[in-house]
Design a protein around this nucleic acid. Structure first.
Length: 659
RNA sequence: GCUCCCGUAGCUCAAUGGAUAGAGCAAGCCCCUUCUAAGGGUUAGAUGUAGGUUCGAUUCCUAUCGGGAGUACCA
């Protein structure tokens, strides 16, 4: 459908949601008709946004204010003019057609009169648009069926995107900084996939380099008797200590420093005296990392290693000395970034081994050769930003085509609230430790809740009054184990994702394993709550009627009497696709977090105020009406749970039915 | 020294140049006989400082103060 050669980022930038597209068309054509003198005005100048307050409307535009100068009129005057014309346009002829998601040839038609209501002017000249609830229902329903009215959901079909993330260093710890990296990387990957791109997850690991030399040097000074180091975790901890030892010696002792430098060279050139031990401890690290990936629900299609790309990296750099891309300097081979306003960096060290920069060139070429892509994303902490500028500048000199479609996406550091994190001093929080802390806390809460639940059941059954969520069995040990694991992962991941990607995180243990408020468990709780409504429904209707029989067509083109809470939920639900689009476009899963939290809050507000299943009628006419209200609320519950589940999936978080 | 990032409520974070700057924790008060209280409601609380651009600035520009990172053989 789209040109597959096009850069996915360009596609994302120029894509607008269903409603935005309609409104932009309307506004633009009314501006053209009202003010033909504005020949320079393009459709891209029409900015559509959501009003600050929901009761202002669903969408708004401030276009009138931007035209004040050109038109020498007051913004209200301009707005009034535009609104009148828009209303005329709608009345005249406007039925719009759009493509069906699954069936491209199928054109669906809809009269705009049935989509929009209440176009008004407010504030200093904003034009506000409100969408009819009846249409919102149809729209939301179609999003979750297979008949989406929103073609934006497949805009990246045909795009091949390589996402490199995690990148932990073997022989060192997997700490909470990596946790942020992997949470973001997995979420980006899933976001791209949700727009139908083909994603290849890549993990690039530094199995050669100074840190390896330091670790192996440290190992040689430690007691590595195997009988104590039986689990992957213990092995990893052992290596972490070895690294700290090596790093300390490297800084404090000249002789050790020499030994380590010598060792480093041996590692680079795969010296026979070292290769067995190097392989052995590398394996220790990698199998430990595997346990973490499994825990976090990430799978990589390809693991790259620095040792693998190192020879080719050297070759590439050397072959571009003659043409002046690289220069000899102090025995090393450097790239003079100054010619592009950057700084000089070493690509091949004077000992002859490639630095990170040299290896990265080898990697970039290998990636494209193995799996040609439209976009290659490399994710690292933002402290590496200047480094990547230079590396990509060098790459664009030798492989311009690859460089053009390669981007570096960075994110802020994860700092400890008290003091800095450093694997050198051993002052680190490992991913495992954090997850286990969270799990411990959750398990305690779950046990307490289960105990209370059991009390509640015995109390109500003694009264013969079986109500509440007592239709559920009490969670057994095994269930508690599974659920608390998922909640722990969710809590930790969510705490990493909810923050804007550029800001540093001041890591706080309690905050990151929080279960209340703006947290992963809160969203999962809301999901489980929705599910419990349906379990109750099933219990009430003895198995049949478990799915809502609310028919959306029943409500099309009708005025609905909905409570403000129900409307509130509707007015959040429909934004899902555009939020996904925005989160993907800006590499910001935090937008999706904010959205889901908003949805959950709205739903919980509704849930608290209105009964879903408890609606009973007296007369027969009333009964029909109340049956309808009940069905609508079930539909709303169903759709909310689906969006929460989908959204959490895009964050890399799995839901649970009960908790 | 130079370059980049960040300064928003007591704390942790939001806000494509737009309307009365949103949340969550923490604090106070209220709500489980009712579909999960890991919930809901309610009270109080903020844009480091000084200029500038703009119809409009938390957002852009300049200066200044404070915090972090990078700055040739680490990644």
């Amino acid at each position: 459908m789209k040109d597959s050669k096009q850069n996915p980022l360009t596609i994302l930038k120029s894509s607008h949601s269903f409603f935005e597209e309609i409104l932009r068309d309307l506004i633009f054509s009314s501006i053209q008709k009202s003010f033909p003198e504005l020949s320079a005005f393009t459709k891209d100048d029409v900015k559509i946004e959501h009003p600050l307050k929901e009761n202002y409307g669903d969408y708004s535009t401030s276009v009138a204010m931007t035209l004040i100068k050109d038109l020498h009129k007051s913004p209200k005057e301009i707005s009034q003019h535009l609104v009148n014309l828009i209303k005329d346009l709608i009345k005249e002829h406007q039925s719009i057609s759009y493509k069906s998601y699954k069936d491209n040839k199928k054109q669906l038609k809809r009269n705009i009169e049935n989509i929009l209501e209440n176009i008004s002017i407010a504030g200093s000249g904003f034009i506000n648009f409100q969408i009819k609830p009846s249409f919102l229902i149809t729209y939301i329903d179609s999003l979750l069926g297979n008949k989406s009215t929103d073609v934006t959901t497949c805009i990246l079909k045909g795009s091949r995107i390589m996402v490199e993330f995690a990148d932990p260093n073997p022989y060192k710890e997997f700490h909470i900084g990596h946790l942020r990296n992997i949470s973001l990387g997995e979420s980006y990957s899933r976001l791209f996939e949700s727009l139908e791109a083909t994603v290849r997850r890549a993990n690039y690991q530094g199995d050669v380099g100074m840190h390896v030399a330091k670790s192996l040097w440290g190992v040689s000074k430690m007691d590595s008797s195997e009988e104590k180091l039986i689990t992957p975790k213990l092995k990893a901890e052992f290596l972490g200590k070895a690294y700290a030892l090596g790093a300390k010696a490297f800084e404090e002792d000249e002789d050790s420093k020499k030994e380590i430098t010598e060792l480093n060279k041996k590692i680079y050139f795969q010296d026979r005296s070292i290769i067995d031990i190097w392989k052995k401890y590398r394996e220790w690290s990698l199998s430990y990392f595997d346990t973490i990936y499994a825990r976090l629900g990430t799978r990589f299609e390809r693991f790259y290693f620095e040792s693998e790309v190192s020879p080719n990296g050297i070759a590439i750099v050397n072959s571009h000395i003659k043409d002046g891309t690289f220069e000899q300097s102090d025995g090393a081979v450097v790239y003079k970034g100054e010619k592009k306003g950057l700084h000089t960096r070493v690509f091949i060290a004077k000992e002859g081994y490639p630095t990170y920069e040299g290896k990265d060139l080898g990697l970039a070429v290998l990636k494209e050769k193995e799996w040609p892509f439209n976009l290659s994303i490399i994710m690292t902490g933002n402290e590496q930003e200047p480094y990547f500028k230079v590396m990509l500048a060098a790459l664009s000199d030798i492989e311009a085509k690859i460089a053009q479609k390669t981007i570096h996406i960075s994110f802020g550091m994860v700092n400890l609230k008290q003091g800095k994190m450093s694997s050198r001093t051993g002052n680190v929080i490992t991913a495992d430790w954090l997850l286990n802390e969270a799990k411990k806390k959750i398990r305690e809460i779950m046990k307490e809740n289960t105990r209370r639940h059991a009390e509640f059941i015995s109390a109500s059954s003694s009264k013969g009054d079986v109500k509440g969520h007592v239709q559920d069995d009490i969670l057994n040990e095994k269930e508690i184990e599974t659920i608390s694991e998922r909640l722990a992962v969710a809590a930790v991941k969510y705490s990493m994702l909810k923050v804007g990607t550029q800001s540093d995180i001041a890591f706080d243990l309690d905050e990151s394993i929080s279960l209340e408020g703006d947290s992963g468990p809160y969203l999962m709780y809301t999901f489980a709550r929705c599910k419990s409504v349906f379990r109750k429904l099933e219990g009430m209707s003895k198995g049949k009627n478990s799915v809502s029989n609310f028919n959306v067509l029943e409500f099309e083109n009708k005025e609905l009497l909905l409570s403000s809470e129900e409307l509130g939920v509707l007015r959040v639900l429909y934004k899902f696709t555009e939020i996904v689009l925005e989160a993907t476009r800006n590499f910001s899963p935090n937008v999706l977090c904010t959205y889901l939290f908003d949805l959950a809050q709205k739903y919980n507000g509704f849930y608290h105020k209105h009964s879903i299943l408890g609606i009973r009628g007296q007369g027969s006419g009333v009964r029909d009406q109340q049956e309808q209200v009940k069905n609508f609320r079930l539909w709303l519950t169903q759709r909310t749970s689906e969006i929460i589940q989908k959204g959490l999936y895009l964050l890399g978080i799995e839901t649970v039915e009960r908790m």
